[in-house]
């Protein structure tokens, strides 16, 4: 059920290797045939490392400008969403908590779209954060009005908030759009990493590094929540402060990720539950593993999204929902005692 130091380091090492391999392999996949060695050479060249003569200008553009930022965005979003899900599950003691299911992602999408439409596209992460925060506050408030926090009440409130926010997002895009509004709506509601560039990669990776990585240090304090708030408090945890800090950071991180990738669902649910099977529930061990697994998971689902029906692109959220909904049901069955 738990891992000791040695196996834990080995697992982390293996997952880093898997992620590096996934990034490179995902870049090689696509309409233009590219070899793994070309990917390494191009990356080394751009990082100013000595090495082989770089590839042609066109292939360089495909690797460096087109595919690499996109796989990095995917990895960052996967790591961030998995972390947000795991933290929300611990804080709310709700095994079904997930940024998508509790309405945060749809709130973030709405906020991002509002800022996009008023012409402040640079501030989209800010709007997304405001939207995610508002959605979280509404979900928590409705859960309270329903008579207190049980997992099923939280999910029901999340569904209501999510539906409302999604409808508002769809309407705003439809009302303002000149051309292909349905594609645009779909990419916000289901998530799509199509057309991600280095600016997007910068936002996502900065958010994961600045907001996500510090949250890892809350691991031990999150363990203390296993038997509730009072138990955590008697173990010396500042329950109120930690909860606000982490929920705030979770909303900010979700906002940044959704502003770039749209409301990609279920990643925050699937990854932590699968990871717990291998690592147990101790957050010091589980959170970093969830981030690494989430990153590789998202790289491959996004690669599938752009490859399966090439040249047409599937919104990546369709794939995560396809995988996530059955796992959601499994979790629901497993926890039927407490829900």
């Amino acid at each position: 059920m738990s891992l000791n130091q040695g196996p834990q380091r080995a697992l982390n090492g293996a997952l880093w290797a898997l992620l590096a391999l996934s990034l490179v392999l995902a870049v090689t996949l696509g309409p233009a045939d590219i070899a793994a060695t070309e990917v390494w050479q191009t990356i080394a060249h751009h990082l100013g490392l000595p090495g082989e003569v770089p590839v042609t200008r066109l292939r360089d553009a495909i690797i460096w400008d087109l595919r690499l930022p996109r796989v990095l965005v995917a990895a960052g979003i996967g790591a961030g969403l998995a972390l947000c899900g795991a933290i929300m599950q611990a804080l709310t003691r709700n095994p079904l908590a997930d940024p998508y299911l509790l309405g945060l992602s749809s709130g973030a999408a709405l906020g991002a779209v509002v800022f996009l439409l008023i012409g402040a596209s640079l501030l989209m992460p800010v709007g997304a954060f405001a939207g995610a925060g508002a959605a979280m506050a509404l979900t928590l408030l409705i859960t309270k009005l329903l008579g207190g926090a049980t997992p099923s009440r939280a999910i029901l409130s999340g569904i209501a908030i999510s539906a409302l926010m999604s409808a508002a997002t769809s309407f705003l895009i439809f009302w303002s759009a000149t051309g292909d509004s349905y594609r645009e709506i779909l990419s916000w509601l289901m998530g799509s990493l199509s057309g991600s560039g280095w600016a997007d990669a910068g936002v996502v990776l900065a958010a994961v590094l600045v907001l996500g990585v510090p949250m890892l240090f809350a691991g031990r304090a999150l363990d203390a929540f296993a038997f509730g708030d009072a138990a955590a408090a008697t173990l010396g945890v500042d329950v109120v402060r930690l909860r606000w800090l982490l929920l705030g950071a979770t909303a900010l991180l979700t906002g940044s990720l959704v502003a770039v990738g749209g409301a990609i669902g279920f990643v925050g649910l699937i990854v932590p539950h699968v990871v717990r099977l291998a690592t147990g529930s101790r957050h010091r061990v589980m959170l970093p593993v969830a981030m690494l697994v989430g990153a590789s998971f998202m790289v491959w689902t996004d690669t599938a999204a752009r490859s399966l029906f090439a040249p047409r692109e599937l919104p990546v959220g369709i794939i995560t929902a396809l995988l996530g909904a059955p796992i959601f049901l499994l979790v629901l069955l497993r926890y039927r005692r407490v829900t």
């Binding site: 059920m1 738990s2 003691r93 095994p95 296993a226 038997f227 509730g228 717990r276 147990g280 529930s281 101790r282 926890y335 005692r337 407490v338």
Partner: peptide
């Protein structure tokens, strides 16, 4: 409580 920890944990 739905807790996935070992007794020792």
């Amino acid at each position: 409580a739905e807790v996935h920890l070992s007794a020792r944990e």
